[in-house]
Amino acid sequence: MAKVFLNGQPVEHAHEVHEHISPMSTYNAVIGALFVLTGLTFAVSFADLGPASLTVAMVVAFIKASLVVAYFMHLKYDDKYHLFVFLGTIIFVGIFFGFTMFDLKSRDALNDEQETFVRWKEMENAGKGLAVGVDNVPERRAKVLAEIEAHGGGHGGGHGEAGHGGGEHKTDAKAEHKAAAH
């Protein structure tokens, strides 16, 4: 075979595989950076940054993700079309998030203004810890509640498996449990 074609174009050195092989130092540096960044988010999560904490965490996550994509997944050295596919995907995710959030945000503002709010409000049921729904469908809420009671502590598989049996119930000391959770 004289000539070889790829993508409809002749290929000069068809049999050569030219893949980029990164030196060990690159991989070591990247994993080092990833660990450092992980430590950073972890540490920052103990500080009280308030609403900024989401932004900080996301920025760090994006940096980490970019490192993985660029060096571990070789996108930096790869066919540019793969980069295009990847970034294109991110853009479509952005569209999906953007429009949906936009609607839900602007809808809430409107609902609040017109006092036609139908979503469950946290404050009204505060403290009851009940998994209940919107306020204007009491029957359904009653149904859900009944279902929860019926499932009670007895189901879910977690009990038997962890060896506590079904005996432990509401009577257990809250504080003790809260502590045990962490």
Binding site: G129, A131, G156, G158, H159, E161, E176, K178
Partner: peptide, 24 residues
């Protein structure tokens, strides 16, 4: 599982003494 922190209608943490406000 043990603490009843399960999805949806299987959620039962309040029966295990965990009070989380709202719709956990």
């Amino acid at each position: 599982f043990e603490h009843g922190m399960l999805p949806g209608k299987f959620y039962s943490a309040h029966l295990h003494g965990y009070e989380i406000d709202g719709l956990p």
